[in-house]
């Protein structure tokens, strides 16, 4: 097929090369070409954050990223957060505090939290609220998520 580009990038610590139309969404490349289905589509227009991944350390909505833009990038998805299937502290705190209900926003929310705690290891409530404002959750009303972030921040300090 015409118009395929070979795109090389590092996903969850592994060098990957995919042949894809250059404007194919990073979201679809992750889900379809790499079978990393932990990244979810909620709205397809960058509003809900369900598809959020870390690209070169920045939180991006992968539904808005043409895969060509990921050439040479370092990408981390939810599958790259845990270590050998063991929960990272952020994941453990979401689990314990009830930060995940239906779970569909959870991968994006956990990556957003990861990003937030990198930026502010001990965030204020306002920093948490603003840091997660690009990730919509319809189940929790966010209160348990804030608590999970606070707990993760505490653990990070220990």
């Amino acid at each position: 097929m015409a118009g395929l580009a070979a795109v090389r990038f590092r996903v969850n610590g592994v060098e990957r090369t995919v042949e894809a139309p250059p404007v194919k969404r990073l979201l679809d490349v992750l889900r379809e070409d790499l079978q990393l289905t932990g990244t979810k589509e909620g709205c397809g227009e960058g509003e809900c954050g369900s598809c959020a991944v870390l690209m070169n350390g920045e939180l991006v909505n992968s539904c808005l990223v043409p895969v060509l833009q990921a050439e040479g990038a370092v990408v981390c998805t939810i599958e790259g957060v845990s270590v050998d299937g063991r929960l990272a502290p952020v994941q453990q705190c979401f689990l314990e505090e009830g930060g995940a209900q239906c779970g569909i926003c959870t991968p994006g929310m956990i990556l957003a939290t990861h990003h937030l705690l990198e930026k502010y290891p001990q965030p204020t409530l306002l920093q948490i609220q603003e840091g997660l404002a690009g990730n919509l959750c319809r189940c929790t009303g966010y209160m348990r998520i804030f608590e999970a972030v606070r707990q993760a921040s505490e653990r990070g300090r220990d």
Partner: peptide
């Protein structure tokens, strides 16, 4: 009491398979 959600580990791992997965 508040035991861990039964399907919670898979959800925070992103391993849960929804229909589109």
């Amino acid at each position: 009491t508040s035991p861990l959600r039964k399907e919670g580990v898979a959800k925070v791992l992103g391993a849960t398979r929804y229909i589109d997965d």
